[in-house]
Amino acid sequence: MTFSAADSRYDTIRFRRAGRSGLQLPEFSLGLWQNFGDNRSFTTQRDIVLRAFDLGVTHFDLANRYGPPSRSAEKNFGRIVREDLSPYREEIVVTTKAGNPIGASPYLSGGSRKHLLSSLDISLRDLGLDYVDIFYSHSPDLNTPLEETVGALVSAVRSGKALYAGISNYGRDRALEAAHLLAAEGVPLLVHQSRYSILDQHIDRDGILDAATETGTGTIAYSPLAQGLLTDKYLSGSVPQDSRAADSAFLSANDITADYVSHAEELNRIAQERGQSLPQLALQWVLRRPDVTSALIGASSVAQLEHNLAATGFAELSTDELARIDAHAVDLSPR
């Protein structure tokens, strides 16, 4: 069946400018970190991606290690582009990253020029694209000079294989240095992607958001639901067999503590009083700050996608509600 995008796809979605750049991104972006590997139904993946686009989500976030196995998410998304989204390439923002380990070889991880640029070439091959819109250094590599990592990002942009440069998971000082090094080469740092949620506010506490504002860099918030802790899945204190805490490397049953449950219950109560779900409250909270360009959401079904995208359809959070939320904003997010 030939895909034809909905004519109404831009009727309700809201966009925010990425830092001081000319690029606008939707408030919600679709992350393909989990649920888009070869262990998931391709039909379901396709349904989620195409429904997201029909609802105005134009930004699709990938990395070379997303799967499992590594690179499978890029291959699966590349198939969707080839079969469905290729007529809309000008309307979508496709991003990828390199730097986190994808194998035992020393050339399959880190911030070296070798790894970053060779990985980008393979990502473009798997995606079936001539360029990605944003290419990220996925995480800081303290064993590689930052100048080398930045130089690779500059080369990616100057070669036309990427339109913009980004970083992810950097600390404040290293992010500032990367921004200044990139600016000196005439390649502005477009975005910094960081964990951010009610239960993980380190980018506020450590000045990472302030540094982004100082350098004109946009902020992309990932894990806004704290790997599922900000849903109703674990409010009973138990771990469902089909939940992330049962089989994920990023969340475990040990994270479902009595302390967590007590705070999550109170946050859920605030959400219910507002007529929304806990994940909708959590997403609205992340986007309360205008310096957050976009919140990355994942989805395992079209229904979950639609539910989360409805988060900004509720009244703005009041000063009193924000204070109540803050009282339960303990740092419980898994690393």
Rank of each mutant, 00 (worst) to 15 (best):
S4Q: 15
S4D: 11
A5Q: 07
A6Q: 13
A6T: 12
D7Y: 09
I13L: 06
F15Y: 15
A18K: 12
L23Y: 10
P26K: 00
S29A: 15
N35R: 07
N35I: 04
R40Y: 12
R40T: 13
T44M: 13
I48M: 02
I48W: 06
I48L: 06
V49G: 01
V49P: 05
A52G: 00
F60C: 09
R65T: 08
Y66I: 03
G67A: 11
P68I: 07
S70L: 01
R71F: 14
N76I: 00
G78R: 10
P87G: 05
R89L: 14
R89N: 12
R89C: 03
E90S: 15
E91V: 00
I102K: 01
G110R: 04
L116H: 01
L120Q: 01
I122D: 14
L127C: 13
I134F: 03
F135E: 00
Y136W: 08
S137T: 06
S137Y: 08
H138I: 03
L142I: 07
L142H: 14
P145K: 09
E147R: 05
V154Q: 04
V157I: 04
K161E: 10
D173H: 05
L181E: 12
A183T: 11
G186C: 01
P188K: 07
L190Y: 01
V191D: 01
Q193V: 02
Y196C: 10
D200G: 15
H202C: 07
R205L: 14
D206W: 05
G207M: 12
G207S: 09
G218P: 05
T219C: 15
I220R: 00
I220L: 15
A221G: 07
Y222P: 03
S223K: 03
A226H: 07
K233T: 15
K233L: 12
Y234D: 11
S236R: 09
G237R: 05
S238C: 10
D242F: 10
A246D: 14
A253I: 03
D255F: 11
D255K: 09
I256D: 01
Y260H: 02
S262A: 15
A264L: 02
E266T: 11
R269A: 06
R269I: 06
Q272F: 08
E273H: 11
L278S: 04
P279L: 13
A282H: 12
V286Y: 02
L287K: 13
R288H: 07
D291M: 08
D291N: 14
V292Q: 10
G298C: 03
A299E: 10
S300E: 10
A311H: 04
A311P: 06
F314Y: 15
F314P: 08
S318Y: 06
L322P: 14
A323H: 09
R335D: 15
